[in-house]
């Protein structure tokens, strides 16, 4: 089956400083893919670049295909049909994504008019249906309210409703619950997974929170310094991470039950994109690093069914993994 979205060798540089250094992602129909990594790892830039949403001074190269059609360098008219239509995006800060001086109806209807062939009453009916769908109580009356009249969780629901206006095939959710309280986060994540199932929509969930990604995605890609370092089905990644960085991220997470242990912090900090170390970008912080790690950047290589890792020191654990799989 050919993937719905296929990103190959995507690279981005701002003012000559590379921030994305060759990213490959394949997203299947209806699949939920998680993208984790720390700030500056390129999780958001990947999708902003794919949709042509980066400022003009960003140099983007590589290939992004949606159903086989190239999006990079595509004419604006074609991109306009893709963005918000086939691929929708929601962001961390929902309050700043809505216009404070327009009613919710006006903003929802605008999205509907752009992406659907609906007129007059049909638009309003559809707007109400969307608000009902995302669980805003008393939708008919609330349509004439302004953004400030809703709570943070409700505003994120409205953003989801707007994203659904074009009946997208893919929803890119960039830290959709980071600004929300824990109990509201649980509500929004449940809403997203229900909608995804009902509309058989693919979803890319970008988050720094490993728990959020683990619970809501089929497959997870871990990013570090502008590259994907490990990719695996989420249950396998969290049970048995192979890349030292992925291991470090999971070890750094305090457990919520069982005995307390000292956290295994990753020493040092993320490298400055302008002064990237030669070879593997993680090597300066890696406990397993050897001389060869500084020579060339490792590329993603398969280690098992549906699992890839970019680490030359993963060889040992890779053999062990394949050995277990063969038995």
């Amino acid at each position: 089956m050919s993937p719905l979205v296929s990103i190959q060798g995507l690279s981005v540089a701002f003012n000559g400083v590379p921030v994305l250094r060759g990213v490959d992602i394949a997203l299947g129909k209806g699949e939920a893919l998680g993208l984790v990594g720390e700030s500056g790892s390129g999780k958001s830039v990947t999708w902003l670049a794919a949709l042509g949403l980066l400022p003009r001074h960003a140099r983007v190269s590589g290939s992004v295909r949606l159903d086989g059609r190239e999006l990079l360098g595509a004419p604006a008219t074609e991109l306009d049909r893709v963005r918000g239509g086939r691929v929708a995006m929601i962001f961390q800060d929902p309050a700043s994504a809505l216009n404070p001086v327009l009613t919710i109806r006006k903003q929802l209807c605008e999205a509907l008019a752009l992406h659907r062939d609906l007129q007059g009453e049909a638009v309003k009916a559809e707007a109400k249906r969307l608000l009902d769908l995302v669980g805003i109580p008393d939708a008919a009356r609330r349509l004439s309210a302004y953004p400030h009249e809703f709570s943070g969780g409700q505003v994120q629901r409205i953003m989801i409703a707007m994203a659904l206006a074009g009946n997208p095939d893919v929803l890119i959710a960039d830290e959709p619950t980071t600004a929300l309280d824990a109990t509201i986060q649980a509500q929004i994540l449940e809403l997203l997974s229900t909608i995804r199932r009902e509309m058989s929509m693919a979803m890319v969930l970008i988050s720094h929170d490993l728990g959020v990604v683990a619970e809501n995605c089929d497959r997870v890609a871990v990013m570090y310094a502008g590259r994907i370092v490990e990719q695996a089905p989420s249950n396998q990644l969290f049970a048995d991470p192979v890349h030292p960085y992925a291991q470090g991220l999971i070890g750094a997470l305090p457990p919520l039950d069982g005995p307390r242990r000292r956290l295994t912090a990753i020493p040092g900090t993320v490298p400055d994109p302008a002064h990237m170390p030669g070879g593997c970008a993680f090597a300066p912080r890696c406990a397993l690093a050897e001389e060869a790690c500084g020579l060339g950047a490792p590329s993603l290589a398969p280690i098992a069914n549906d699992r890839t890792v970019a680490c030359i020191r993963a060889e040992a654990s890779r053999r062990a993994l394949l050995g277990i799989a063969a038995e």
Partner: peptide, 12 residues
């Protein structure tokens, strides 16, 4: 609150 805290390796 405890139940809302996401945990790797546990589906929701």
């Amino acid at each position: 609150l405890v139940s809302a805290s996401p945990a790797p390796g546990r589906r929701s």
